[in-house]
């Protein structure tokens, strides 16, 4: 980004502001931004809505944020409830909480703890998912992925059976990648080089190239070795 001086956007309490090019954006409290925002640094603490897209180098959201357009951020750190209408792209992302994306999600590295819903495709280099709730994506493409469930108490187990949305499971159409290490995943097809299917998986079709391991507690429909 160029060196022209831009102003900061600081909002505390309740308010609204217009979009535009800023150096720093800091939203605290309850706020609304009308229009596209581009900034070097975007920080949110509280509840905010952006009626447009966000383009920034570092993106930090703590609380509840709704962005109606796309978000692109080199570094993204998200705690809380994030709702992005368009796509979410960037280099590295850490999520703690629940993330909902209408479009695609693209990162080189993605570490997520919690739940998520990706309407389009989740495409990331390295994916590490720890599920508290449900994870959903139309399809996943990656270099390596690891899916785990957070250990939990018996009380929560009972609650989760009442609310299926809280069942820690990854639901997706297809997962494709080089190194796949899955647990508690429901998918129609899994294709990869080295594939490990762990407990709690229900997968209709597995295609692997070099290595395949399956936990006795996993259900797999068909297994295929490709590239002979």
């Amino acid at each position: 980004m160029d060196n022209q001086p831009y102003g900061d956007l600081n909002m505390s309490g309740v308010g609204s502001a217009g979009g535009g090019r800023y150096r720093r954006v800091k939203l605290e409290g309850v706020g609304k931004v009308n229009g596209n925002v581009s900034a070097d640094d975007f920080r949110l603490n509280g509840v905010s809505t952006v009626r447009g897209s966000v383009e920034t180098k570092s993106f930090f959201a703590n609380g509840k944020l709704k962005v109606e357009g796309d978000v692109s951020a080199d570094q993204a750190e998200m705690d809380g409830l994030i709702d992005v209408g368009g796509s979410l792209t960037g280099h590295e992302a850490v999520l703690n909480g629940y993330l909902k994306i209408g479009g695609d999600c693209e990162f080189e590295r993605l570490r997520a703890a919690g739940g998520f819903e990706v309407g389009g495709m989740l495409n990331a280099g390295f994916v590490d998912i720890a599920l508290y709730g449900q994870g959903k994506a139309r399809e996943i493409g990656c270099e390596s992925i690891r899916v785990r469930k957070i250990p939990k108490s018996r009380w929560k187990e009972a609650l989760r059976n009442l609310f299926p949305r809280w069942r820690p499971e990854l639901l997706t159409g297809t997962i494709e990648g080089d190194d796949l290490d899955l647990e508690h995943t429901v998918a129609s097809a899994v294709r990869g080089n080295r594939v490990t299917i762990g407990p709690g998986c229900r997968i209709e079709r597995v295609e692997y190239r070099t290595e395949y391991r399956k936990h006795p507690g996993a259900k797999v429909g068909k297994e295929w070795r490709t590239g002979e």
Partner: peptide, 29 residues
Amino acid sequence: ISYGQLYRWKRKQLIPEEWFIRKSTFTGQ
């Protein structure tokens, strides 16, 4: 090439989105 390479190139926009054509076949999408 591997799936990982293909997806990495797609992320870097070396392969345009329009070339990914989804079709349903008897094995699914």
